[in-house]
Design a protein around this nucleic acid. Sequence first.
DNA 1: TCGCGACTTCAGGTT
DNA 2: GAAGTCGCGA
Length: 762
Amino acid sequence: MSQAGTAIQLTPAQQEAVEHFSGPMLVLAGPGSGKTRVVTQRIARLIEKGVRPWNILAITFTNKAASEMSDRLKNLSESRNLWVSTFHRFCAHVLRQRSDVIGLQQNFTILDTADQKQAIKHVLHELDFDAAHYPPNKILACISNAKNDLCTADAFVKQFEESVADHFTAVVARVYPAYQKFLLESNAVDFDDLLLHTVHLFEQHEEIRASYDDRYQYVLVDEYQDTNEAQYRIVRALAQNSRNLSVTGDPDQSIYGWRGAKIANILRFEQDYPETKVIKLEQNFRSTKMILAAADSLISNNTYRKAKELTTDNPEGEPVELLRFPDSPNEADSIARHIRQMVDSGKRKWSDIAIFYRVNSLSRLLELAMVRHRVPYQIAAGVAFYQRAEVRLLLAYLDLINNPQNRSAFLRAVNKPLRGIGKTSQQRLTNWAESNGLSYIEAALQADKIPKMPKRAGISLKMFAKMMQDFSLADSGSVAQLLRDVIDKTGFTRQWDATKSEQDAQHLANVEELVAAAQHYDEMMEDETTLEGFLETTSLVSDLDSLENETDSKGKVTLMTLHAAKGLEFPVVYIVGLEQNLLPHERVLQEVSLRDYEEERRLLFVGMTRAEEQLYLTVSDYREMHGRSMPTILSDFLSEIDLVQTDGTTLTQGLPDTAYSSTLKEDVISEDDLQAVRQAISRKDRPQLTTAASLLKGKPKTAELPFNFPIGSSVRHPRYGLGTVTNAGGFGHRRTITVDFDEQNRTETFIVSKCPLQLVGR
DNA sequence: TCGCGACTTCAGGTT
DNA sequence: GAAGTCGCGA
């Protein structure tokens, strides 16, 4: 934070918040007002005043926020035994302690989104609904919304029976209970259940609630404006007796309404806790006057808000610029060049710069441009690693060992590697298992009793089940060793040969990396290492957790969605695509809901207020949407902001870089290359998989992007000029390419990782 | 039972 | 542009 490093003087309002001791407190903190600093200093003060660290609970929404706070606390005071957690981790912890009460076992599985989808499909199939006609994602969204509002399956069905509902709701009313049954029988929960079960645990078992209330005398909740009903009730349950609840947030930064967040929670806090002390932090230490004024004039168009006065003593700064481009490839390319020039000229370092966008699909062209211009970047897509087929599969094996009732894991693992157990055999098994009340593993052990089961499939099933039963953490000794045993026994890696293809090498490297992650977990937990603990760290990581926050090294440019940007700050910010249907998003334009429309405005507000010194908004006259180039309309929000307009194509005029040519239709870099780049980046730099607290502690490294120069592509050398790649050799750091320089009639061989070559669009 | 290619349909943000 | 579905041939 800009303020944290040097000027230590607290404003009177900050001081008051830091010194607040007991009773409820609401801190309304505008962007850049030093909120995190206030929270951490207050915790330090609490401890100084004699509060014991284990009586304090600090809750955030993301792992990143949690680990950042932990890190800061480390500098401030003796903070061991102090728990900084996300809502979901906190709930997982509570539920493991009291799993018996809610009908689960302690080793329950946390399903991720892909598992959930698979489960829904399975249920749809069982109920004889056509998955094509009832999209699993829509059903899932509907169930999730219900859960966020604490509407259980029973309640949903009852509500449905008592009201006039549409056909789709009727289907959900059938699917929801069946889905819950599937989860329960799998000894599993989904993300929403973590919250929902915890609410029920607290509200239906007073003695349990009271014990946690008593344990956590001081509860602090960050980003309170983003709490949904379930989270609201959890917080309430924890502060019922102790009442030392302090929440921080900013209604203007509420951007998770679609996830069930209720902005009303923060607006009504004073009614919920009448003795509340309210503190407003309105002085901004982050942005220039120009940027703050622009953001303020935007947000003042919202009607559903508490007016706030944002002020700053920072310099005037430069005006917010609107950059206009003819099309999206041009936009991406110009931004990349602009960034490169800022860094090359020594004005900025890579990590000073961030690019935000409304939808993930916009990152594609930007990434390609970054690669083309050799701009090192990081993108919030760290979990992509856990989504890779081979990693998911191995995790399914571990999951099944940990929780033999887990149906999703069984179905995923049973025929991979191939064991000749096809769809129909699986169907017969699951039907039989369910009608006999057995887990799939138990049923597989008696596969010969299943009617119509082919002999070969039956034998395979038995062998598979026996093999799974023979695995145990106790026998292997550590999660990493167990993983290796699984790989050995299943012949998991036999299908790949690193020397045969690049893809195979990637698969093998991913497997290696998962083993390394497990080993890291083992080492960190020592004797306490558990399978469900490891699996929990893999299912509760988020995209954001892969990002580094480096300030010392030159670092990387950060690409992320506007949603992910909350809580961060950068000297230079680009917000891409200020166009109708994109920002505001088309979905809120179709409906006539003012609430949703205003959330889009808040989203832009959040993005703009991340910027410290320079803020660029961009539009393209044509943008690729759904694989097609479409003319665009300027975002209505632009008329609410004071800015200067610039022709974006002139951004880097008169400067030496000439890699760009206006017809970038054929990208020299293919989608596969981009995947490889992403993988290579993430493998090198992703922090080791750990618990929240130790995330992001890896030393900052600057990754040299692996550049691909396909044979036949055009390149530019600063001295030799234009040339064509004619040959390639070697691997990794020693990869070389040979280039013919037509103009000078010479041929040179370069080491790719060191050469000053640049790809040129054709 | 399995892999491949052709085809359709779909694309918001996150724990 | 990508992912999922379907039908075919081996």
